[in-house]
Nucleic acid binder design. Structure first.
Lengths: 352, 352
DNA sequence: AGTTTCTGCACCATCGATTGTGCAAGCGCA
DNA sequence: TGCGCTTGCACAATCGATGGTGCAGAAACT
């Protein structure tokens, strides 16, 4: 009790103190003691000692023995983004409520890094892995499969494991429609005035781009096929795309479909240092929701992916996976300009 | 190689395959083999076999034996916020570059939860713990201390461990000054037109509020002491504070000092559904930086805390802690309206 | 040849918890 | 009294890696 840097108590310490065997102590402290027919009074003694000495289970030892760790992994592309960070927040809540410990790591959209990260987590014997927005989901799948680790894709689908993703086509259709409708009938948007920025060759971008084209054609009658400026998931590349466009055309389009909030940051970089008036007539649709983004000085229509529903579905699937890999679509929601929605933080208790 | 759900290879498997003892295999694979005078050729054989069979070290076993895990913990209040998520992003980079594995978890600003979380992490034998914005840093300290775990406070200081925090006083002074200067000389701000919203009774809020008062007094000559509306770190409480103010006064103040981006979300909630014109004359200073927040339809001056510097300093301190607990101040930076700064994501390689 | 010094590695206890198995004491019952 | 059943627990192997120690054979030296 009183030594300065006392070592942590183990079941062996408690075994000596209580006069029981280590296995009895273990059973009592991990709750399996009734099954092992340990006397109530013995259990109470041990529990009392455990509290007195502040015993806590060494989870590495347990993990080694059980070859599970109680850790559940979430692999994100990046942390620094409201979509992914709210994913992390929601995930944590779910994992905690199941009595496990969340581990959130990012892998930078780098296939190599993704696999290495998965392997590291596997080395810690994590119990499950949620793979969000992976650039190479199937590569990660191989790694998990080889280790017999349950895993699931979120946000970007893989061919070899179950996937829960946003209904990108429907979302992009809604968004494109909403952008077009934002313009009145007296001065309607022309097909060559609406451009899409961002995206790369991943499933989500392809779906969104495809819905963008289809909806443009349906509502505006035409769709000049230079309407898409791929710029990956990088603010700076997106900035350069805007600069190039501006250089070429002498102005921005009247309306923009922006593929993600990360690309939207590219637009911000373009705006910085340029007069605000330049953007006063702009209409933007952004596939992602960010509360601050919703209040920019021009109409920003956003799409909020239903993170809570995605995570919930993912847990269902990982618990009892159907046979063949499937893709589950979760409907996203169209968010009108100037909306400040509640988020995962609102479930925490408010303290003033 | 070919079984479907093959178990992972262990040093014992490689020991049999290579004809060496497990300890030799272990030494070869963890890099200590030269020290143990293992022949080069033996080492190569084993390394070859390890690659062939995709051996990876069981880190729980290693952790158990070494009583360290290679895990480094970061405990955040919440994920879903650009300040904290960029903290996570930066932290990850540092930890990875040291060959360890980052574990990021949140504890909801709940003292109880903070201690429990620390204990869980300790049970996994994490090597170090970075405690960010804890409501009860000293409570967490007790837990770490008892386990002999190196730890450090960031963002909010504790009395018992080293702390690296933003220079809140200087930051708030800069911010208050900048807000006041935003108004021209022809229609200068009056002391009763500048209010602070947000904050609670923590070190950061106290410093900021104190600098706010002092600067108001210095620049505006007076400081009616009802100028502060505490509303914790909750968007909804902040919303209610704005509503109450508006109800009472029939208008918002001309200028606002907002204590954090979370409180700023309370302002967004207030704005939602109200006409944009209501806010066209508003000037806001926000202690926190969010790129989207910087481009709202009124001037928003922000303070960016230097996350990179804070994390760097924290690593220095945790590596060789000075004797007595100290508080290290890191200067934040004033960010003019309409600025889109680079962040931790920009260090990732861009892919289009 | 005999002794010392390296080389190169094997042996084994250990980290802390889990779990299958075994067994003595106590009890009921014929 | 003797048999079998139940109760209550102890024993010991095990998870996979680590690292101190010891030892045989080769090399170096006298």
């Amino acid at each position: 009790m009183d030594q300065q840097v006392k070592k942590k108590a183990t079941i062996y310490d408690l075994s000596v103190l209580s006069g029981s065997s280590p296995s009895t102590v273990s059973a009592v402290l991990n709750g399996t003691w009734r099954k092992r027919r340990i006397k109530e009074s013995t259990a109470q003694t041990i529990i009392g000692l455990a509290e007195l000495h502040q015993y806590t289970t060494n989870l590495q030892a347990r993990g080694l023995r059980r070859s599970r760790s109680g850790l559940v992994g979430l692999m994100l592309p990046v942390h620094d983004n409201r979509y992914f960070s709210s994913m992390a927040q929601t995930f944590e809540g779910h994992v905690r409520s199941r009595g496990q410990c969340p581990v959130v790591v990012s892998a930078s959209r780098d296939p190599e890094e993704e696999r290495r990260t998965a392997e590291t987590l596997i080395s810690y014997s994590i119990d499950q892995l949620f793979i969000v927005g992976a650039t190479d989901p199937d590569g990660v799948h191989e790694v998990c499969e080889a280790a017999g680790l349950r895993h699931i894709n979120i946000d970007l689908p893989g061919a070899k494991a179950h996937s829960v993703i946003s209904d990108n086509y429907a979302g992009a259709r809604m968004l494109t429609e909403a952008i077009i409708r934002q313009f009145g009938n007296d001065d309607p948007l022309r097909p060559d005035e609406l451009f899409l920025f961002g995206g790369r060759n991943d499933h989500a971008s392809r779906e969104r781009i495809s819905a963008f084209h289809a909806t443009k054609k349906a509502l505006l009658g035409a769709d000049p096929d230079d309407g898409v400026q791929s710029s990956g998931y990088s603010p700076d590349i997106t900035l350069r795309a805007f600069e190039a466009f501006y250089q070429r055309e002498g102005k921005l389009p009247r309306a923009l479909f922006i593929n993600s909030s990360i690309n939207m940051e590219g637009l911000l970089r373009f705006m910085a240092g340029r007069p605000a008036e330049m953007f006063s007539e702009l209409v933007v649709g952004c596939y992602d929701y960010d509360p601050f983004g919703s209040f920019l000085p021009f109409p920003v229509i956003m799409v909020r992916q239903n993170v809570e529903a995605m995570i919930t579905k993912a847990f269902e699937l990982i618990d009892e996976p159907p046979r063949a890999p499937q893709i589950f679509l979760i409907a996203p929601e169209l968010i009108q300009p100037r909306s400040a929605l509640k988020g995962p933080l609102d479930t925490l208790k408010d303290v003033a």
